[in-house]
Design a protein around this nucleic acid. Structure first.
Length: 556
RNA sequence: GGCGCAUUGGUCAAGCGGUUAAGACGUCGCCCUCUCACGGCGGAAUCUGGGGUUCGAUUCCCCAAUGCGCUACCA
C-alpha cells in the first residue's frame, strides 16, 4: 500500500523548494522591538467601501506608529470573482485616502522581499506546504463530487448533526486503512481525475461544549478568545490547485511574517480552522484583531444592515465623487475607530492625525452605524484647517475628474482661494465648507456662469426693494470699510422706516416696516441671489466693484 | 436549524460594583450690535428584558429577546 510520502510524491511530483527553503527565503524580519507587521488583503472585486478603508486604517496605523511594515497583498484565490482593473482601482483608491504601503503590489509591480504578493502567483508555495501536510498524514485527497457532498449534507440535516465533511463522512479520509481504496485513489490520481485536498482534522466531531478542547487566542480588540477545536476537514487546495482563503492566510501570513492580522469579525467563526492549520504546520499564531463591521440603515425600515457590496453610498467612489476631502474621511473614520480620538483632537487641533496614538483596546467590538451628519460635521472642521490655496488645488483636481462642468471656477486660482477663505480667519471662523459639490453650490454666486436669483425679497421689504437698491447704489463706495458700509445700510433702513436694530423691531413691531436685516436681505438677494450668505461687505470686496454695481443695476 | 459575536439617549460613545450615568453629532429653545455659519448658554433624550451573586448592580454570572455574522472547492 501507498505510504503518505508516496501519495504526496504522486500528487506533487516536482516542486522546486522544500518548506525549509521557504523558511530561509523569508526569514524573520529584523525590526525594532514591538514593531508590527500588518497587511491588507483585498480580493479584487473592484469594489471598496468605507468598511474596507476603516480596516485599512487600523493596519496602517498599527504598523507605522510602531515602526513596522504594512503591505498590500492581493487575495485573488477566487477565480470566479475577478474583476478587470480591480487591482488598479484598489491601489488608487487607497492612495487617494493616503493609505501608504511599505511593501506589496503597486502599479509598477511588487516592492519588498517577502513576495510574490499576489496569491494567484504563489501556487508552488501553497503546494509545497500542502505536500508537507500530505506527507505527515495531516491531509488527504478527496474525490467527493458536488452531488455526493449534497447528499451528505441532506443526510446530516435529516440526522440533525453538524453539516460538513469530517471524520466519518468522507471515505477518502481513511484511504490508508483500506487496501482497495488506496489502490483506487492511486489510479484516479494517475488518471488525472480532479480532487481537492482536505485537512485531516484531529478534532473530535460534535463534542459537547465541555468536552471540546479549547485554545486561547489573543485578540487585540476582544481580549483572550476561547477557541474550540476545529473538526472540519476543510478544503485547503481546491480542484483548480488554488488554495482556499484559510490555507492561503496561514501560509502567507506566516511566510510574510505578519504579526497582526486585522480582519472583520465575520472571520471569527473560522478561527478554529486557522488555529488548527497553524498548529499542523508547526507555526506560531499571529495576534488577531477582529474588528466590528461598519453598518448602515437598511432601505426597508430602521433596521441595521451590514454594508452590502452594492450600497452605492457606502462605496469609496461615492465619497470621492461627492468631493469629500480624504483628510475628512480619515478624520471621521478615526473618530469611530478610537473613542478617545475626538477628545485628543480637541486638545490638539492642529496636529496631524498621525500623531494620535491609536490602540486596538479602544476599538469598539460592536458595529457602528455610519453617520453622515457626523461625517459632515467632521469634514467642516477638517476643511477649516486646510489652507485655502491647497483647498483650491484639491477642488480643481476633483473637478477635472468628477465634475468638469465647473471648469470656469478654476480660471483664477487666487480669486478662488480668496473666495474659499471668506470669513475663515475671523476670530470665530466660519465652518461651512463640507464637500466639493456642496462648496460648488455654496460659492456659485461668485460666477456669472452659475449665478441665479432663487430667493425672493422678504415680505417686510419687498415693496421698497427698488428704493433700497437705488439708494444703495447711489451711496456705494467700494473703498468703505465694513463699519462705514454698514452705517450706510442703517441710514437707508431708518430713512425708509425700518428699525436700525432687530431688537427694536421685535419690541415695537408696530412702529416699523421691518428692520435692518430685511433691508440687507434685499441687497443680499440682488447680489447673491439668495437670502443666506457670508458677510456682504466681505463678499463685495472679493467680487469687485464692477460686478457689485452691475448685479445691483440688474434689479432696478 | 446549529454555532459565533454584539446589546448605554435618534447616532457614535465614556463607564470597568456605590457617579446628579461624561462628551460629540443630531434635535429643540435662548443669546451673540444684518441673514446664515461659527461661538456661548440651556433643554429633551439612554443602561433590551428576566433571573441570580452582592449590603449595593449599567458594570459580574445565567437565561431570553433582538441585531449582525458564519454554516462553500467565496473571501
Amino acid at each position: 500500500m501507498l505510504s503518505n510520502r508516496e501519495l504526496a510524491q504522486l500528487i506533487y511530483p516536482s516542486l522546486p523548494h522544500t518548506p525549509e527553503e521557504y523558511e530561509e527565503m523569508y526569514p524573520e524580519r529584523k525590526l525594532p522591538e514591538g514593531a508590527r507587521v500588518t497587511r491588507l488583503g483585498p480580493s479584487p472585486t473592484g469594489f471598496i467601501h468605507l468598511g474596507n478603508l476603516y480596516g485599512a486604517f487600523v493596519d496602517e496605523r498599527l504598523a507605522h506608529q510602531s515602526g513596522g511594515v504594512f503591505f498590500l497583498r492581493i487575495e485573488d484565490t477566487d477565480d470566479k470573482r475577478f474583476v478587470e482593473n480591480a487591482v488598479e482601482t484598489i491601489i488608487s483608491s487607497l492612495a487617494f485616502f493616503d493609505i501608504r504601503f511599505d511593501e506589496g503590489v503597486t502599479e509598477n509591480g511588487d516592492i519588498g522581499s517577502y513576495g510574490d504578493y499576489t496569491q494567484s502567483h504563489r501556487g508552488e508555495i501553497y503546494r509545497t506546504f500542502a505536500r508537507r501536510l500530505l506527507e505527515k498524514g495531516m491531509a488527504y485527497p478527496c474525490f467527493l463530487s458536488e452531488k455526493e457532498i449534497t447528499a451528505i449534507r441532506e443526510k446530516q440535516e435529516a440526522e440533525k448533526t453538524s453539516p460538513g465533511i469530517y471524520a466519518g463522512w468522507s471515505k477518502y479520509r481513511d484511504w490508508d486503512k483500506d487496501e482497495a481504496l488506496a489502490t483506487e485513489v492511486e489510479s484516479r490520481i494517475r488518471a488525472g481525475e480532479p480532487f481537492v485536498i482536505r485537512l485531516k482534522s484531529r478534532g473530535v466531531p460534535n463534542a459537547s461544549a465541555e468536552e471540546t478542547a479549547r485554545h486561547t487566542v489573543t485578540d487585540a480588540v476582544r481580549g483572550e478568545l476561547s477557541v474550540p477545536d476545529n473538526f472540519q476537514d476543510v478544503v485547503i487546495i481546491k480542484q483548480t490547485g488554488i488554495p482556499t482563503y484559510h490555507f492561503a492566510h496561514v501560509v502567507d501570513d506566516h511566510l510574510m511574517r505578519t504579526t497582526h492580522v486585522i480582519r472583520g469579525e465575520e472571520w471569527l467563526p473560522s478561527l478554529p480552522i486557522h488555529v488548527e492549520l497553524f498548529e499542523a504546520l508547526g507555526w506560531d499564531l499571529p495576534v488577531y484583531c477582529h474588528t466590528a463591521q461598519l453598518m448602515k440603515i437598511g432601505e426597508d425600515g430602521n433596521k441595521r444592515k451590514l454594508s452590502k457590496r452594492k450600497d452605492p453610498e457606502l462605496s469609496l467612489d461615492y465619497y470621492r465623487s461627492q468631493g469629500y476631502h480624504p483628510a475628512a474621511v480619515r478624520e471621521y473614520l478615526l473618530t469611530i475607530l478610537n473613542s478617545n480620538y475626538e477628545e485628543w483632537r480637541a486638545e490638539n487641533p492642529d496636529a496631524s492625525s498621525d500623531e494620535f496614538v491609536f490602540t486596538t483596546e479602544k476599538m469598539s467590538s460592536s458595529g457602528a452605524l455610519f453617520d453622515l451628519d457626523k461625517l459632515n460635521d467632521v469634514s467642516k472642521s477638517t476643511l477649516l484647517r486646510t489652507d485655502a490655496h491647497e483647498l483650491a488645488k484639491w477642488l480643481k483636481a476633483w473637478s477635472s475628474e468628477f465634475a468638469p462642468e465647473y471648469g470656469y471656477v478654476f480660471e483664477d486660482m487666487d480669486h478662488l482661494a480668496d473666495i474659499l477663505d471668506l470669513g475663515r480667519h475671523d476670530a470665530r471662523p466660519r465652518a461651512d465648507l463640507v464637500y466639493a459639490r456642496q462648496i460648488m453650490d455654496h460659492i456659485s454666486y461668485f460666477f456669472d456662469e452659475s449665478f441665479s436669483r432663487t430667493d425672493s425679497y422678504p415680505e417686510e421689504a419687498a415693496s421698497d426693494a427698488g428704493e433700497i437698491l437705488t439708494r444703495y447704489l447711489e451711496s456705494y463706495d467700494h473703498s468703505d470699510d465694513n463699519g462705514t458700509w454698514f452705517d450706510k445700510i442703517r441710514q437707508i433702513a431708518t430713512d425708509l422706516g425700518y428699525a436700525a436694530k432687530p431688537k427694536d423691531y421685535k419690541k415695537h413691531p408696530e412702529e416699523y416696516k421691518g428692520h435692518v436685516g430685511h433691508v440687507s436681505t434685499v441687497i443680499r438677494i440682488a447680489l447673491m441671489g439668495r437670502a443666506v450668505s457670508p458677510d456682504v461687505w466681505a463678499i463685495q470686496q472679493i467680487m469687485g466693484e464692477e460686478k457689485v454695481r452691475s448685479r445691483i443695476g440688474e434689479c432696478l
